[in-house]
Amino acid sequence: MSLSSAKEGQEVRVVYIHGGVNATKRLAEMGILPGVELKVVSNSIGPILVALGESRIAIGRGLASKVICELKS
């Protein structure tokens, strides 16, 4: 599934990111890498707000659709 289709409150693990070179790099440098766990704080319209540990990061909807995740079991 993509991050953009995750529901509010769901916890996911990043599997793969196939965004543009710069965007992927920027996400990685901010700590959003394959294997990392995220929690979806808000996902309604516009950007998606995720919790990465003790921080909140807004990711544009387009880019979020290129962040492939799996549900944390």
Binding site: G19, G20, N22, A23, R26, L27, M30, P47, L49, S55, R56, I57, A58, I59, G60, G62, L63
Partner: peptide, 10 residues
């Protein structure tokens, strides 16, 4: 348009 990636502080 470049994708939005932005940290949101508490």
């Amino acid at each position: 348009v470049s994708p939005l990636i932005m940290e949101i502080p508490p």
